[in-house]
Simulated scan of single mutants.
Amino acid sequence: MRVGVHKVLMNSPADVAGLERLIEAGEVAPAEIVAVIGKTEGNGGANDFTRALATLSFALALARHLGITPDAVAKRIAFVWSGGTEGVLSPHATVFTRSAAPAAASKRLAIGIAATRDLAPEEVGTMVEVRLVAEAVRRAQAEAGIADAADVHYVQVKGPLLTPAAVADADSRGARLVTRDPNGSKPYARGATALGVALALGEVAEAALGDEAIARRMDLYSSVANTSAGGELSKCEVLLFGNAEGAGGDLRIGHAVLRDVVDAEGVRAAAASAAGEPGELREPGAAIDPAGIAAIFAKAEAPPDGRLRGRRTTMLSDADIHYERHARAALGAVIASVTGDGAIFVSGGTEHQCKPGEAPIAAIVRV
C-alpha cells in the first residue's frame, strides 16, 4: 500500500479548483482519496463555519466524480479542517490517497482512519470521549499496519465542541455539561481527545485519568496528538500516521516537540526524524530543502505565563485578539522561514498535547 500526499491551495473555503486540476491531470484518482486535512480562513472559534463550507464544497465536487451523494462522500472520506490562517499561513488542503504498491525496502508512510460513534453533549470533554477515542486510535493503528506505537508520529483527531444547540438539548434533558460556554468547551473537547490518543498509545495509564483531570492535569499528555474541535461534527474522526513495514512509496513521517512558538530547530528536528538522519538536519541553522517536504502539521501555544524566553508578550492579555490567533501567526512565520512554504497546518490549543508551553510538530518528507 502506498500513501500519496497532494497539497492544493485554496482561494476561498469553497474553492475546489486545485483538487479538480489534480483529478483532471490524472495525478489523483477520486476513488483513492481517503482523507483531507486543511486550513481555512475562518476565526477558528465555535462560530467558524468556513470548515463546514469547505467539507460541503469538497464533498459536492467528489460526489460528481464518484457517482455517490455528498453525504456518502463525507462518510467515505475523513475531512479535518482547522480555521485560522493568520499571518503568513496560506489556506490549503492536503489530500491523502491510498493505492496498491509493492513494499519498500524500509518502513514508509502509512495511514489508518477510524471514527467514534456520535457523542451526546454531556459526553463531550469527559472520560467517555477519552475511551471512545482510545478505541478508535487502536483501530486506526491496526488498519495502518503499525505494530509498534513508537512508529506512530502523528494522530489528528477532530471532534465536536458544545454548540448553543447542544447546550439547549442537554438542558432539555437535564443532562450535566462540562461547561455551558461553546468556546469554553474547546479545551475540554481537545483535551479529552488528546488523552484518548495518549491512553491508546501507552503514553498515560488509565488509572491516572478521570473527568477531573481533563483540561486540568497538564502533566498528562501525548507527544504525537494534534486535536481540534468544531461545531460541525458530532463524532470524533481519527487519522493516524506512522511508518510501517510493508508500506510502499517514497514518503516517511517523523515528529518532534516544539519548546515554544519560535523554535526553528524543532521544525528541523521533525524533518530529520522523518528523513531518518538525526544528525544532519539538527545542526544549528541547517537548511531544509522545501521540495523534500510534502506536509507539516503543528500545534501552536502561548507561553503559560505569557513570557517568551524571558520577554513579556501580550498573547494572554490581549482583549481584542485571542491567544490562539497570536500563536498560530507566530509559529506559522517561523515554520515558513525554515521551509519557505506558508501552506502549513498550524492549529491552536495544546491541552494534553505535550508539556505546557510545548507543542507537537510532524513532518512528512520524501526519501
Rank of each mutant, 00 (worst) to 15 (best):
R2H: 09
G4C: 00
N11H: 15
S12Y: 08
V16C: 12
E24S: 11
E24H: 07
G26V: 00
A35E: 03
G38T: 02
T40F: 13
E41V: 01
E41G: 11
N43M: 05
N47C: 10
D48T: 01
D48H: 06
D48P: 03
F49A: 12
T50K: 15
L53C: 07
L53W: 08
A54G: 09
T55F: 09
L56H: 13
S57M: 07
A61H: 07
L66S: 09
L66T: 07
G67P: 06
I68T: 13
P70H: 04
P70C: 06
V73T: 07
A74F: 07
F79Y: 12
V80W: 05
W81Y: 15
G84D: 05
V88E: 14
L89R: 12
T97H: 11
P102A: 13
S106M: 05
G112D: 06
I113C: 09
D118M: 02
E122Y: 07
M127P: 06
E129M: 15
R131S: 09
V133K: 07
R138S: 14
G145A: 00
D148M: 04
Y154V: 10
Y154I: 07
Y154F: 15
K158I: 15
V167S: 11
V167H: 12
A168P: 08
G174E: 01
D181W: 04
L201T: 00
L201E: 05
A207M: 04
A208R: 12
A208M: 05
G210V: 03
A215D: 03
S222A: 00
A225Q: 08
L233V: 08
L233R: 13
K235V: 06
A244R: 08
H255R: 10
H255F: 10
A256C: 05
V257S: 08
D260M: 06
D263S: 08
A274W: 00
L281G: 13
P284M: 11
F297Q: 10
K299T: 09
A302G: 13
A302W: 05
G306H: 04
I321Q: 06
Y323M: 12
E324N: 10
H326Y: 03
A329Y: 04
A329I: 06
G332I: 11
S337V: 02
T350A: 09
E351L: 02
E351D: 13
E351C: 13
G357Q: 04
G357I: 00
A363H: 05
